[in-house]
Design a binder for these strands. Structure first.
Lengths: 194, 194, 194, 194
DNA sequence: TATGAATGAGTCTTCATTCAT
DNA sequence: CATGAATGAAGACTCATTCAT
C-alpha cells in the first residue's frame, strides 16, 4: 500500500463513523478535516469530491458489517445456527463490533430522498444482496432437510431483514434497547420455526 | 380562528408535505416561502424559527396519519378487524390518503441523529404512543376472548410496528412494492393468529 | 427608485469600473464586496450571481459610452461633423468622460473565449449595432449629398470601428498615446474623404 | 539538445496552443499536466512557475507567426508584394498555418490588465518591433521608388497593424468572417496606394 | 404586523506551489 | 532529476435569522 492509498484509507477510516452518524448531507468537509487533521487540499487530492469520500466511507462501513456477519455465519455448521447468529449480532449493533453509528444500510437508506442517489443505490443493492444471501441460506437449509419443505424462503428472508432493520431504527429512535431484544427474540423464534 | 391562526395553519398545510419529503435539514426557508407565496417576514412573524415550523408540520402530518388509522379502526367492530385494517392502510402509504412523503414517523426518525432533537422526541413519543394503542387493542381483544389468552400483547404490538415501519423503509429504499405487499401480508397473518 | 433598486444601482456603479478594468474572471466577489463595502449576502440578495452583476456592469459601461457618443453626435449638424466627433471622443478614452477602464466593448470582447458567452454576446451585439448606426449615418449623409455617391457605407463604417477599437487596444497595450492620435487622425481623414 | 532542453521544448509545444486559446489565467497547471501527460514535479523541475511556461509558450507562438510572415515576405521580390502578403496571411488566421488560438499578440494584449505584466511587455515589444519592421519595409520601398515619396511610413505601418489586429478582434468576437475579408481588402488597397 | 434588505458564518471546490521521498 | 502528496489561500455561492422601515 503506497502513500496515497494509505492516506485514502486513513481518510476513509476516520470519516466512516462520521458519515454513518451524521449522514451524507450532515457531514461537512470541515468535519472531515477535523476528524483527519488533514488539510482541505489533502482531502481533495485523494478524493474527487465529498461524494467520493461518502461512497468510500459507506462501502467501508458496509463491508465491516458484512464481514462481521459472514465471519460469524461461517463459524456455524447448521443452516439454522447460521441464520440464528444474525439477530444475535444485531443485539449488539451499538457495540464496537459494529461500525460507529450502527447499520450503514439503514442510515443511508433514510437520508432525504434526492440527496444522494448514488449512495441510495448502493444501500438498495446491499439490501437486495443481503436478501439473496438469506434466501440462499434458507434454500440450502431446506435442501439439507434442516428446514420444512413448505417454508417460503423469499418471504422468510424478507421478514428477517424487515424485522432487523425496523428494530434497529426503532431502537435508535427511542433508545429503548428492550425493543431490540424483543424483536431479535422474535426473529430467533421465526428462524427456529423454519 | 383569527387571522394569525389562519396564517399559521396555512403555512403548516403548505409546508407539511415538503418537510415530509425533503426532511428537516433539506427544507429551506426559501422552500417555505415558495410553497406559501408569503414573505420571509410573514413566516418569522408567525413562527419563531424553522424549527417551530418543522415541529408544527410534523404534528400536522402525524395527526393526519393517526386520524386516518383511528377512523378506519373505529369503523371495525371486532378487535381483530380493527388491527387488520392497519397493514391494509399501509399498503397504500404513498397514496393521497397518506401525507405526501409517506410515514412522517419514519421520515423524522431517520434524519441524521443530532440534527433536531425536539423533532426526534416527537417521533419517539409517536412510536411509543402508537405502541401503547396497539397493546390496548390487543389486550381488549384478549378480554373480549377474541384473542388467545397466551398472546403477548407487548411483543405482538411491537412486532406489528416494527414490520410496518421496516417494510415502509425498505420499500422506499428499493422501490419494490412487492416487499411491502409480502410484509403486510405477514402482518395480517400475524394478527389472524393472535 | 425603491431601496432594492437603489442598492442594485449602487452595486452596479461601484462595480462597473472594476469589471471594465479587471475583466469578468479577474473580478472576484471579494472585489465587489470591497468596492461596495456591502456584505456577501447583500450582493447575492440583489443579484442572482456574479454573472448577473457582470452583465449589469457591462450594460452600465456600454450605455455610458453610447450616451457619450450619441450626445456628441446629436450636437452636430452635418453628417460629416457627426461622424468626425467619434474619433475625437476616443482620443480621450482614458479620461473621466469614458467609463474607467476604457472601451467596455473591447474589454469584454477580449476575455478568454469561453469564459462568459452571455457577456460576449452583448459585446457582439454592441459592435453590430454600432456598425449599423454608422452605416445609417453614412447613408443619410449620402442622401443629403454630403458624401460621395460612390462611398461604400458598409465598408467605411467597418473601417472606422476597426481602426478605433484596434487603436484603443494597441494604445492600452503599449501605453503609446501617440498611436491613438495617429490613428484617430487617419479616421478623421477617412471621414473627410467620404 | 539535452534531455532537459527537450522536455522544456516538449512542454512548450504542447502548452502553447492552450495558453493561446484559454489565456494565461484561464490555463491551469492541471491543463498543462493533461496536455503533456507529465507530472507536476516534472513541470516545476523544468520551469520556475506557471509564468515561465506562459512566457515560453507566448514566445513560441509569437515566433511561429513571425516566421510565417517573414517566410512569406522573403519569397516576394517587390516591397509592395512583401507588404501585400501580410493581410493575405491574416485572412487565414484561424487555419493551421497560424498558432492554434489565433494571433498571440492580440490574445496576450487583451488579458485583464494587471494579470501578467511580463507577458504584456512581451506583447508590447512584439507590436513595436512589428511596427518597426513595417516602417523599414515601407521606407525601403520608398528608397527603391516603389512607393510615393510623400508616403508617411510610420503612419501607414501603424494603420496596417491597427486594421489587422482590430479586424482579428472583431472577427473573433462576432464570428463574422466577412468583417475580416472586408478589412483585409482595405489593407491591401491601402498598400497598393502607398 | 408585515416587509424584504442585509447579515456573515458556513458550504463545497480549485489552484499554484512546495518538499519529503 | 522526478514524483505526487500536501498545503492553505481564495474562489463562488447558500442559508437561517435579524431589523429598520
Amino acid at each position: 500500500m503506497n502513500k496515497s492509498e494509505r492516506t485514502r484509507q486513513f481518510i476513509i477510516e476516520k470519516t466512516a463513523p462520521i458519515f454513518n452518524t451524521k449522514g451524507y448531507a450532515g457531514t461537512s468537509i470541515s468535519d472531515i478535516i477535523e476528524a483527519t487533521k488533514l488539510t482541505k487540499g489533502s482531502i481533495y487530492g485523494n478524493f474527487k469530491n465529498k461524494d467520493e469520500v461518502a461512497v468510500a466511507a459507506f462501502q467501508y462501513n458496509l463491508s465491516k458489517v458484512q464481514a462481521l456477519i459472514s465471519n460469524e455465519v461461517a463459524k456455524k455448521v447448521t443452516y439454522r445456527e447460521k441464520l440464528k447468529c444474525i439477530p444475535q449480532l444485531y443485539l449488539d449493533f451499538l457495540s464496537e463490533k459494529f461500525p460507529v453509528g450502527g447499520c450503514p444500510i439503514l442510515n443511508t437508506a433514510t437520508e432525504a430522498d434526492d440527496t444522494h442517489p448514488e449512495l441510495r443505490k448502493l444501500a438498495k443493492n446491499a439490501i437486495i444482496s443481503w436478501n439473496e444471501n438469506l434466501v440462499t441460506l434458507i434454500t440450502k437449509g431446506k435442501e439439507k432437510k434442516e428446514f420444512k419443505t413448505e417454508t417460503n424462503a423469499a418471504e422468510k428472508a424478507l421478514l428477517i431483514i424487515t424485522l432487523i432493520e425496523g428494530a434497529v431504527m426503532l431502537t435508535k429512535l427511542t433508545g429503548l434497547t428492550n425493543y431490540l431484544k424483543t424483536v431479535m427474540n422474535s426473529v430467533t423464534t421465526l428462524i427456529e420455526e423454519l
